[in-house]
Every structure is written in structure tokens, then in C-alpha cells.
Design a binder for these strands. Structure first.
Lengths: 210, 210, 210, 210
DNA sequence: TATGAATGAGACTTCATTCAT
DNA sequence: CATGAATGAAGTCTCATTCAT
């Protein structure tokens, strides 16, 4: 199974024109969130940044939180792609260790958060405030499923529920540490990758022992 | 009662009264934050919840963020107390292991977040948005110092800077995992404590190895 | 040189619709100031009087003081136009006397304050409280420059600084007397014009003598 | 007739204690007005400045505007005293000129405004906003009466009404010019006194000619 | 469909005044 | 009388959303 097949197939937007507009708006939203933070994120600012009228924004997004949801979904999809690649690599190396697979997970997570750190951080805040529409949940559960798949191979006797919990915790743990590292500026260093891997392995070793 | 006590003018006859008002307001703020989240947190709601006029709120707190800062400070102080106890216990048992000390740290953090989980979670959001006045920073650095002290005993060769980073990361890691656990409802279980301890030890083992 | 040339070129307001809205708001502001005085002047009242929402008001004016500044600017521009005409008339009659020129100044000032006496009076108060943005200063200095030009012709040996002071004082003097006259209701009478002219000439004769 | 006799006899406040409190409050009000301007003038600030509770302030003054009225009345009384002296001096020199008498008027007005220039200026603003209670009117009409008396001696044929108008205008004129001079900082200079005197004489010469 | 002017609920904060102690 | 905590109306400004053009 390839990374392609793992990813949810994308719906192709109807018109090229509207697709361009959606892209413009989403990118503007991302920029506003990065530059002005959660506090300065508002529909008027996004529309202005996009060089588009508020009316158009509302044509494509039912409201402010839909914008956040879309940003969220896109971020998740990026992560999903990276994870899919990680899973593929892991499954291509059957005799590797758990630590090696976990390292792949860590690398994917680091790469993801480093792409647009300010964006992901601000997004976290907004997501907590708004209850996410079901849309983003789908991608989120796919992410979790991939992590389950990645770590599940090396933790055979574990119940599916326990694996799910472990996957969710692993992601949360990774995000927290990467946020700190990004803030400090050492997220790219191998030493940080090692620390993150260590934490994940420490966590998983206890899970496995139960 | 000494002559001093008799002669000293009462600082404020109404101190008991205002102290009660402050408590009422702070508690109301906590409740609003717990129930309505960061989005629903506003001065009018807090005043209403406290059964007090907005004016009174502003008599005791210069503004909304002062309220958040106070809530933050109090939370941090609670953690500080727990951590202090943990450090004391750790230093009273010199031949213990790093894992035992880390478990104490985990317990303190769990106990802290479990006291008012929704509050601490919402507080996190608000803190990210508002830049906290220096007051809370003081307590925060005390917390970090305590963690440094706790884990530093078992990681002798480490540079102070590396220790500080490790302490900050440890706290962030713990918060993230505990948030997840609280949301799931198993934060109180020994198994969770073990997992958190495992994650922290995994992280620190890598730090120590460098 | 014509009065037109003397006046700063006006920027043409962009759209017909927004121009109408701006006019509506400004006129409402003027009316509120006239009717309720400085104390009753607030953004809600202005918006209500304009039959417009507060939001619209803030779309066109960044705040309360911008409204005051605009009112001020418009008043000053009216005076500017009258003064320009006075200067033109004076310069067209080279063998006239200082008294004749001063009379023109008095007439212009009287005409100005009589247009909307209550407005100008209330505006004075507000200007004193709020420090005016630089915009209105521009017009104010143009006014002063015109007065300098008007009276300077008949007071040749005077230093520029002294002339500036004389111009500012003349305007202040005129405003004060006209305020009184407006309150009494005789601002339109020739006798008042004569008294004002007399006061100005009395002032200037001393200035000239130095 | 002496200056004493011209002044309205003061009522002696009942208790020494309350008199002291009134003095404290009034002086605090003056200071607040001077330092914070009309915008920053509020009852709480005055009470705090006076080292007194708001309640006490309201014990002695029915409200904010009563405070302003008192400040106003006191300022007027000071002017009244100076004017009384000026009148006395004028009446002691029967063969003087109008210009000499007017100079005395100018001096008195200058001395008055220079005593606490910021206070008098801010007071002007407040008076315009609040309609003065009848209390201050009494002193004001006494002031006017004194000016009438001062200038009436040299303008024999004038109707009482015309004299009243001339007196009011003269005071307004003087205040306006002195305000300007105070702002510039040359109110104390003899040259300014001469200019003010010139303006007043110019005004009065026209009045007399009618 | 695109526009962007218009809306108005609601957030924050101030301050004149009252009243229980 | 003195106190000062408490009140709440009123004012300033923002921003998500709608709707006429």
C-alpha cells in the first residue's frame, strides 16, 4: 500500500476560479494567524490580506471557525502525508526496532511543526477555543490510525484501545516538546530529535509492559 | 498581645471585607473560565458570576488580564507547593533512583492539573494570548528552579543551561500528557502515572547521555 | 492671486456613497455638538442622530476625536476662505488704511462665528481638551499666515515673529468678543463690528509702536 | 470707600474642623485641575489628592460641579479684590486719563490669571460645560459692577446698559489675550500689558464715540 | 458571484454618587 | 461625621455577519 492510497482522496473543486479564491483566502488566513496571532485573527483582516471582499470570504466559508477548521485540516493533511511516508518506510524495513520507527514518527512530527511553526502554534490556541467541526476530525483520526499502525507493529500484544490512547498521547507529547524546541530554536538539531525519540520510547516502553 | 500590636494602627479596618471580595471575584473568574472557556471569559460575566458589579471588579483588578494573571499565579503557587514537597521527599531519600524522583515530579504535576483541570486548560490558552505581567513569571521561574533541583541531583554532570531546558521540557511534556489523560478520565490511575514517568525518564535518559 | 489659489487644494472624496455617509455623520456631529454641548457629545449620540450605526461611524472616523478634528478643520476652512477673500480685497486696494483692512478681518471673523455660533463655541471647548491631530494644525497655520499677510502690509517694519504673535492674538481677541456678542445677539450689528475693529486697531497700534 | 467695604463679607464657616476640610478639598481640586486638566478632573482624584474620603467630599459639596463652582467663585473673588484695589487707586487719582484707568484694569486681570494660569484656563473649560449655579453669578456681577465703575468714570455720557456690555466685553477680551500670553510666556512683560491696554482702549474709544 | 458598506451586539473600562459600617 | 467599598449607567470601540447593489 502506498502513501497515496493511505491518504484520503481529495475532492477536486468545481471551478478553477473558485479554487483559486479558496486558496488565496486560506493562505491569507494562515498569514494573518502567523503574523497577528489568535487575537488579531478576524475575518476582515483575512479578507483584506487576501485582497478579497468579506462577502467573498463568506461565499466560501460559512464563518470564521470554518476558516480555522480548514487551516487545521490542511495542517493535519501535511502531517498525514509525512506520516504516511514514515509508515511506508517503516513497513519497508521489517527487521527494524521500535526505536527506529519512533524516530521516524518524531522526524515527521518535527518536520510538520517546523514548516510553519507560528501558524501551528496559533492554530492550537484557536482549536481549543472553537469546538472543531467534524471535518477536521476525519483527518485527525486518520493521523491517529497511522500512528497506531506505525507503533502497533512493534507492540504486538496490545489491545486496540490501548494503542489508540498511546497514539494520541504520543502525538500530544511530540507537539508539546516540539513547541518548546521551536520556541527555543533547536527543533532542527539532531539532539532534540533524540530527546523526543527518547521520551516517546520511554512512554511506549511502559505501555508495552502493561 | 504585645504593645506593638496594640499600638499599631489597623492597616485596613475593611481588609477582611476586601479580601473576601477578592476571593469571590477570583473564584468567579475561575468558574467562568471553567464553564465558558477562554472565549466566554469576560469581565461582565465574571462580575455577574461573583454577584458583584463590574465596578467592584475593577476596584480590585486593573483589568481582565490582571484577573487571568492572578488565576495563573494561584495555579502556579499550588504547583510550587506540591513540587516543594516532592523535592523535600526526594532529598530525604538520598539513595533513591532518578526514576523515583521523576515519579514524584509526575505525581505533583498530576495532582496539580487534576485539581481543576478545565481551569488549567483554559488558562493555558489565555496565557498564550495575553503576555503575562512579570508577576506570574516569578512563580514560573521558581517552579523551574525546583524541577532543576529535583532532577539535577540525579544528573550530576549536566550544564546548568541543559538542566533548565530539561526542566522546562519536562513540565511541558507532563502538562501535555496530563491534559490528554484528564480529557480521557484516567489521569488518576497508577498506569497513567507510570506512563508519564516513563516518558519523562526516556527524555531525561537521552539528556543525560549527551 | 485668487482666493482659490490661496486655499489648499481639496482632495476629492472617493465614492459618492461614502461621501454622503461622511457628510451625514459630520452634520450629525455638528448638530449634537450644537444641541448637547461638549458634555453630551459622544459617538453613540452622533451615530443615532445620523440615523446610522456606531460601526459605520467608526468606519469613517477612527474615533471621537477624529470627528472633532474634522469639524474643526471644516470650520477653519470656512474661515480660511473668508479670510482669503478679505486678503484679496485688501490687496486690491493698496491705498487703503490699516483700519480698513482690520475691518475686513473683523467682518470675516464675525461672518465665520455667526454661521454656526453654538458649534464653534462648543468646538473651542473640545479642542482645548483634546490635543488636535496635526491635520487641523495645518489649516490653523494657514489662517494665521493669512492674517499675517493682511495686517503685515500695513505694519512694514515688524519682525515676522512679532507679526505671528499679533496675528494669533488678533484672532483670539476677535473670537472672544464675537462669542460675547453672539451670546448677546448683537454680533450682526455694525456697532459691534466697529467695536471689534477698534479693539483690534488698538492692539495693533501698540504692536506697531514698539 | 475701601477695598474691604467693596468686597462681600465672608461667611465664617461654623466649625474650624470642617473649614479646614473644605480648604483641603478645594485646594486638592485646584491642584488636580491644574495637573490633570479638565479631562482628568474627577471626584475620586480630588478626594485622593486631599487625603480624604469621597464621602467627606460629598459631605461638603453636593457634587462635582459644586466643586467647580467653588473654585470659580474663589478665582472670581481674587479678581474682585484686585479690581477693588484698582478702582480705589483710580478714584484716588481724579485727574488721570482713561488709558491710565484701563491700564489698572489690565494689570489686575493679568495678575489674576498669572496667579494660577493652568487652573484658570482649565476652569474656563469646565465652566463652559457646566452651567454655573447662581452662587458664582453673584461674584461675577460684582466684578462687572467694579469694571463698570472703573471705566464709567471716564465715559460719562454712556447708558448703563452700554457700560455693562463694555465691561463684560473688556473682561472677555482681557482673558482671551492673557490666555494667549500665558501660553506664550510673556504675560508678565510690560509690552504685553501695553498691548492689552491698547486693545481695551481701542475697544472703549469706539464705545465712547457712539 | 463579487463587493464592501452597514449593522449592532457585546466587550472593556471609568467615574459620579450612594450607603452601610 | 468619616470612610471607602460598592454600584451601574454610560461611553468607547471591535468585529462577525448580512445584504443591497
Amino acid at each position: 500500500m502506498t502513501a497515496q492510497a493511505i491518504l484520503t482522496p481529495r475532492k477536486t473543486p468545481a471551478q478553477g476560479r473558485s479554487r483559486a479564491m479558496v486558496e488565496t483566502i486560506v493562505e491569507a488566513a494562515a498569514r494573518v494567524l502567523e503574523e497577528a496571532g489568535a487575537a488579531g485573527f478576524n475575518t476582515n483582516a483575512v479578507a483584506a490580506r487576501a485582497g478579497v471582499s468579506v462577502g467573498s470570504l463568506y461565499q466560501y466559508f460559512p464563518g470564521k471557525q470554518a476558516l480555522v477548521a480548514e487551516l487545521s485540516r490542511r495542517g493535519a493533511e501535511t502531517l498525514l502525508a509525512d506520516l504516511a511516508a514514515a509508515v511506508e518506510a517503516a513497513e519497508a524495513a521489517p527487521e527494524g526496532s521500535l526505536r527506529e520507527d519512533v524516530r521516524r514518527l518524531a522526524q515527521a512530527a518535527i518536520a510538520w511543526q517546523c514548516r510553519r511553526p507560528a501558524l501551528e502554534r496559533a492554530l492550537d490556541q484557536m482549536e481549543a477555543g472553537l469546538d472543531l467541526p467534524t471535518d477536521a476530525r476525519g483527518t485527525a483520526s486518520q493521523i491517529q490510525a497511522l500512528i497506531v499502525r506505525l507503533i502497533g507493529r512493534r507492540l504486538p500484544g496490545l489491545a486496540p484501545d490501548a494503542l489508540s490512547v498511546a497514539a494520541a498521547d504520543s502525538l500530544a507529547l511530540a507537539r508539546a516538546l516540539i513547541d518548546q524546541a521551536v520556541a527555543r530554536g533547536d527543533a532542527h538539531e539532531p539532539a532534540f530529535e533524540a530527546r523526543l525519540t527518547g521520551a516517546l520510547c520511554g512512554y511506549l516502553s511502559v505501555v508495552a509492559a502493561v
